[in-house]
């Protein structure tokens, strides 16, 4: 399925695919096929919005953090997530310019249901252990995905991910620090941690997507927007995190989970694809509606500030 064959006789398409196949990087100002542009917008818009929505489960724990240092660290992390959202939406905006899409549209799309966000951020975080496990497993999974995108064919995406990954490094250590503190704590704390691992594991299996990838995902592989399959990423995640959870003396809620040393592959129980898929499409997760409502409220409630800034700038320009 050569993308070049879709637009017969369009030499630009052919030249573009040759560039991709040579491993060249594409810039925002380069000519690109509309399909490539649309796939990138879909991916980066969803990624950016997921960063923003990713701040919500953890922000809930800021007022309840067990001490000041944890509270400061959690605030720092929430700031980082929103910051990553801003950087990614900026990359998406440049791509969406030909369609007249601006920041407001990109933000509003999440609560009008035109853009989805990662399944993990629809879930509830009932205990402090959940706040830790989000940093441990969810950030771990997100880093594995993002690290695989560092070599994306779209240079502005790869560049911004380099910066994001550097900051994620702190998120990873922060999450592990909470998890380790609980793991070496009382029986009650260990039980809380165990519950949180059980709570998040199926979500993490869904996080990387189905082994059989969708048409759009496969096209992203053709264009080298991404270079790893869902299954490769999931295998790396399990390979890194299952042994760590076991080392803590905790269990993973999957009787099928085991490692085959000859193939270096893990067998695992598939998550409920339909349930999670429906949740992400329809925003029907335990916390989807509540968080979307907060996002809408934040965006619309602050509209007057954005408007006032624009009016002030216009007045200033007129005065000169």
């Amino acid at each position: 399925m050569s993308p070049g064959s879709q637009v017969n006789g369009d030499s630009r398409q052919v030249t573009f695919m040759e560039r991709i196949e040579r491993g060249e990087k594409i810039e925002a100002t380069d000519w690109m096929p509309e399909e490539y542009r649309k796939l990138l917008i879909k991916q980066i818009h969803m990624h950016g919005i997921s960063e923003v929505m990713g701040a919500y489960p953890e922000k809930e724990w800021v007022p309840k953090a067990p001490n000041l240092r944890r509270k400061l660290a959690l605030i720092a992390k929430v700031q980082d997530e929103i910051g990553h959202g801003q950087l990614l939406l900026r990359v998406a905006e440049d791509l969406a310019k030909p369609y007249g899409k601006v920041r407001d549209d990109m933000i509003e799309d999440v609560y009008t249901g035109r853009v989805k966000f990662h399944n993990v951020f629809h879930m509830d975080a009932p205990t402090w252990a959940d706040a830790g496990v989000i940093g441990f497993l969810v950030d771990g999974g997100a880093i594995i995905t993002q690290a695989s995108l560092l070599d994306s064919s779209y240079a502005p995406y790869g560049r911004i991910l380099t910066r994001i990954c550097a900051e994620e490094s702190f998120h990873m250590q922060h999450g592990e620090s909470i998890v380790l503190a609980l793991a070496e704590g009382t029986e009650e704390q260990r039980e809380m941690l165990q519950q949180a691992i059980h709570h998040w594991w199926p979500s993490m299996m869904f996080f990387f997507g189905p082994p059989e990838m969708s048409g759009a995902s496969l096209r992203m592989m053709d264009y080298r927007i991404r270079t790893r399959t869902n299954e490769e990423l999931r295998q790396r995640f399990i390979g890194r995190y299952a042994p760590r959870i076991h080392a803590l003396g905790l269990t993973i809620p999957d009787a099928k989970l085991c490692h085959d040393p000859t193939t270096d592959q893990w067998t695992y129980s598939e998550p409920d694809w339909d349930w999670f898929g429906h949740m992400v499409r329809e925003n029907t997760g335990p916390k989807s509606q509540e968080r979307l409502q907060m996002r809408k409220q934040a965006h619309e409630g602050q509209k007057w500030v954005r408007d006032a800034m624009i009016r002030a700038t216009v007045l200033q320009t007129q005065a000169i």
């Binding site: 771990g140 594995i144 690290a147 490094s169 790396r236 890194r240």
Partner: peptide, 11 residues
């Protein structure tokens, strides 16, 4: 493990 381990995994 560090983030570099995960980045190496990806490559």
């Amino acid at each position: 493990i560090t983030i570099d381990d995960l980045v190496r995994d990806a490559k």
